[in-house]
Design a binder for these strands. Sequence first.
DNA 1: CTATTTGCAAACGCTTTGCCTGATT
DNA 2: AATCAGGCAAAGCGTTTGCAAATAG
Lengths: 138, 138
Amino acid sequence: MAVTRRTKQREAILEVLKNTDCHPTANWIYERVKEDMPHISLGTVYRDLKMLARRGEILEIDFTSNPSRYDCNTGSHYHFRCLKCDRIFDVDEKVNTEIDRQVSRNTGFNVLYHCLEFHGVCLECQKKDSLIYKDSKN
Amino acid sequence: MAVTRRTKQREAILEVLKNTDCHPTANWIYERVKEDMPHISLGTVYRDLKMLARRGEILEIDFTSNPSRYDCNTGSHYHFRCLKCDRIFDVDEKVNTEIDRQVSRNTGFNVLYHCLEFHGVCLECQKKDSLIYKDSKN
DNA sequence: CTATTTGCAAACGCTTTGCCTGATT
DNA sequence: AATCAGGCAAAGCGTTTGCAAATAG
């Protein structure tokens, strides 16, 4: 009954995720892991990310648009997406739990949590004010 | 140069969207329009929705996961997604623009706007506490 | 040894696109 | 008449899945 084994592949995927600060896509992780492990398959990366997310070890950022991003910071927090380079950063802003109760009161819905994503232009893209990152898929 | 024509199809799509309060998917709109217009194609629905969104007549809700949802309320506002029936509702909560400035100050990012989505259980699903809507795709 | 996990490739769901015909101005 | 929009079907992308072989415990 579902004993979870520790495999090189899974460790490698976690390792890459832990060493990235702007939350990557499955494909980006795959490309990285492949450098050390040429035979790993994209399917495995997807499967392992899903499993790790189910086990609560990582977070699947189910926000604006495809593809999914992954985050090893599992605490409740907000994100910022740069509209130029499309990278996602953590935002160190206090999570407002009061607003959930407020919306519950006003609507009658049972609000459990909320997702908040800020959009704009990141520091690097403000400086090098152009399109440098436009093809980066991380 | 790109003169936009008024067509039956586009009118019908807009009409369906205006008469729905929980923001539907392209496919749901397609099924509805097809009742009156059996030969309309799904591709047309996608094309028209994209065009209407580009023109600012409707909103493509670029939030949690696929498929995309559409909204004819183009003003800035928040959404609530029911985790049971998967429908999306407008939330009549004041949009907090101050928080964007605050995050800008703290991070240096140029924050332009934010997206906020509340998740929980809607009124109907609280009452009929089961899975009635689980296959509805609107 | 046996259940879990992998690699691979095929299938998936949603969306976009190319091409040609039909409609609108 | 000229151009824009539609229908259809094929292709696209990110993701999931079936299966036989490999591997962790």
